[in-house]
């Protein structure tokens, strides 16, 4: 299979992951779109070094989280997106209650620190502690401690509300 074909297939299979990460890290549609493109671009850049090396999803989460972290800190982004008009990146659930809950959830996650933001995202994605540790580079015990702290923070946010 050609490199381009293998890559497009990988992205298509995992486009939801990139979408969700973009939404967690950026609050405006414009920035989400820019981050989305940056993640795809970085995945493409590292695609050769990835092949056959690790589990595809582990590698994707790692690159996407790293890109999101550095994306927010780029002092000046020049000529970023290549006007992809067809990239709408929308998700509007039919259920208004779900929509409201998602908005509330994103607002809560965005209040967390960068480390915890990445960890909760992986936890919500259904990752086991070991895999979260592999992706983030923190030990399994640290991941567990952080998750219990995150739960505590979420409860505090709830009380404050």
């Amino acid at each position: 299979m050609r490199k381009e074909e293998a890559f497009t297939q990988l992205i298509k299979e995992n486009e939801g992951i990139i979408f969700k990460i973009s939404r967690v890290y950026c609050d405006t549609r414009e920035n989400q779109k820019d981050l989305y493109q940056d993640i795809v671009f970085q995945l493409w850049k590292g695609f050769d070094s990835f092949r056959g090396e690790a589990k595809a999803s582990t590698w994707m989460y790692r690159v996407a989280l790293n890109t999101a972290f550095t994306f927010l800190r780029k002092e000046k982004r020049k000529g970023t997106a290549v006007g992809i008009e067809n990239l709408h990146l929308t998700y509007e659930p039919d259920d208004p209650i779900l929509e409201e809950r998602l908005a509330e959830m994103y607002a809560q996650i965005r209040q967390l620190s960068d480390v915890n933001k990445g960890i909760i995202l992986l936890l919500l994605e259904g990752k086991k502690y070991e895999e979260i540790a592999t992706i983030t580079g923190f030990s399994r015990s640290k991941v567990a401690t952080r998750i219990s702290r995150i739960k505590e923070t979420l409860r505090t946010q709830l009380v404050k509300k």
Binding site: F7, E15, G16, Q37, P93, L98, L102
Partner: peptide, 29 residues
Amino acid sequence: AWSQMSQDLEKQKQLTDEIILKMTQQKYT
């Protein structure tokens, strides 16, 4: 809520080969 969203997103595929390849060619300075 996350799980519900993930399921919906699985059904709602937006990307085409053309869009993906276009994104790989962006020029970041």
